[in-house]
Amino acid sequence: MELSLATRTVGEHTVLEVGGEVDVYTAPRLRERLLELVDGGARHVVVDLGRVDFLDSTGLGVLVGALKRLRAAGGSFALVCDKEPLLKIFRITALDQVFPLHPTVDAAIGTDPAGTGV
């Protein structure tokens, strides 16, 4: 499935919903969109991976790049992911210790009343 990207704003957060396959071919488009968001002034970015079917090292590299860029700009970057196959990828690469990972967008932006954020 092709990459899909959709952006919405929730309070001070910019939520980027990603769907489809993020790989060596499609990752440059994700990188470009994240750069546009940061250049456009977004400082608190949440990337929702809920509809991602496939994520490879290139996609992970792009996400780490965005995390570093936002931290350097005094912002924040978080991921939403609750699929076990994707979570395993984060664990195996130790990137689960680098990214704030949340099960839902509400948990990522801090409005989850039940406090079930990871």
């Binding site: 992970l60 792009v62 195996i92 690469t93």
Partner: peptide, 15 residues
């Protein structure tokens, strides 16, 4: 980013 991607790619293969 390139070096990071390479390292992460090997971690995935080995893992």
């Amino acid at each position: 980013e390139d070096d990071l991607t390479t390292g992460v790619g090997f971690a995935l293969l080995a893992g």
